[in-house]
Design a protein around this nucleic acid. Structure first.
Lengths: 190, 190
DNA sequence: TGTACATCAGTGAACGCGCGTTCACTGATGTAC
DNA sequence: TGTACATCAGTGAACGCGCGTTCACTGATGTAC
């Protein structure tokens, strides 16, 4: 049953990507390794050929999930023209599509309160992902001092994270939409 | 072993209050009924004399935790004078004290991403708690149309929730403080 | 008011189940000669 | 290049453990007479 090196690496990648989706969909605690491995088309026994522990998988899944989400945001930014790329980011982040995308969304939205209790390695990776996003958003404030741009980016990102999280908690669909809309108006100076 | 009606009601209250703290400290999934009952000074077997299920306890714990947190915010608001009560709320919510208070904090901060996956009853209670806070904060915008004040309150609350959540995720204490500080400056027009 | 009995809050053991993790086994791959 | 052997990815059963939930039992409380 031994697989080629290429195949082994592909399997490992598939497990991490599957975990990144499963964790975001169901939460960290609620996603069993059995679920993740089955969703990746494998049995659970082989897990420890690739990883030391569930915590290690979580850390790697956070890295991959964060990068994938950053790419989504970056492509949304480049869809808007140079001047309006901040608005394009805000509209993508605060869209009902993002709110309803349980597998591909921002990891902080789907896992925020669980990440706050995760081990240091995972939180360090989440911190890096956040800072990468902060840098990217900060560039949308040209002719602004770097520290000020960074501060603005932190505010915009955290505000959006809170809004999408809350839009998922409330039961009233109209209220959920309103939360996204009001935050969008606020952040785009409407 | 039967207890008096008063004692029974007190026990029930104690379980709910203990659960409200345990859930916020450790998360919903990570808090076992055994943990909650032991923390309330009881054995786990008696749980079902008071509640139908863990989900029911969660819903009631959300209600109690939300009310207790609202009272904290209201007392913070009345500590500042009438004009600056909004600023007092923002400063209390975005304080390191609130970030570091794992048991008494805002339920959305400690449980947000888990609440988003909770059952309808719990999310309905969380929605009520949120709307109560929105109404309370909206009153800090006098001489403003009710719809506009409500919109502003939604924005302020969600932005603060996101900031405190993120401040708990990041590993760098300076960055954590900066997140709180920048959001405070932003919301108080600094 | 005093007595007999039903109620039921709380205990502690047990239920089935799924968790994270381990392990003997398999057989195709990669390596050594 | 061809053959013999070591490696190890993946399987499936098993480990101990804790989960949510159930239940027989207890004894003090509340109730009926």
């Amino acid at each position: 049953m031994k697989k080629s090196k290429v195949e082994t690496a592909q399997t490992r990648d598939r497990i991490v990507k599957t975990a990144a989706a499963e964790f975001r969909r169901n939460g960290i605690h609620a996603s069993g390794l059995n679920d993740v491995m089955a969703a990746a088309g494998l049995t659970h026994g082989g897990f420890y050929r690739h990883f030391d522990s569930k915590d290690q998988l979580l850390a790697e899944a956070c890295a991959v999930g964060g990068e994938a989400f950053a790419e989504m945001i970056e492509s949304a930014a480049s869809a808007g023209d140079g001047k309006n790329s901040l608005q394009a980011i805000v509209e993508a982040y605060l869209s009902p599509k993002h709110r309803d995308d349980r597998e591909g969304c921002c990891p902080v939205v789907s896992l925020g309160s669980e990440l706050a209790r995760a081990d240091e390695a995972t939180r360090a990776i989440a911190t890096e992902g956040f800072l990468d996003l902060v840098d990217f958003v900060a560039k949308r404030f040209p002719r602004t001092k770097p520290e000020v741009a960074k501060a603005k980016a932190i505010v915009v990102l955290c505000a959006m994270m809170g809004a999408v999280t809350m839009s998922r908690v409330v039961v009233d669909p109209d209220l959920s939409d309103e939360i996204l809309l009001q935050m969008k108006k606020h952040l785009t100076g409407g």
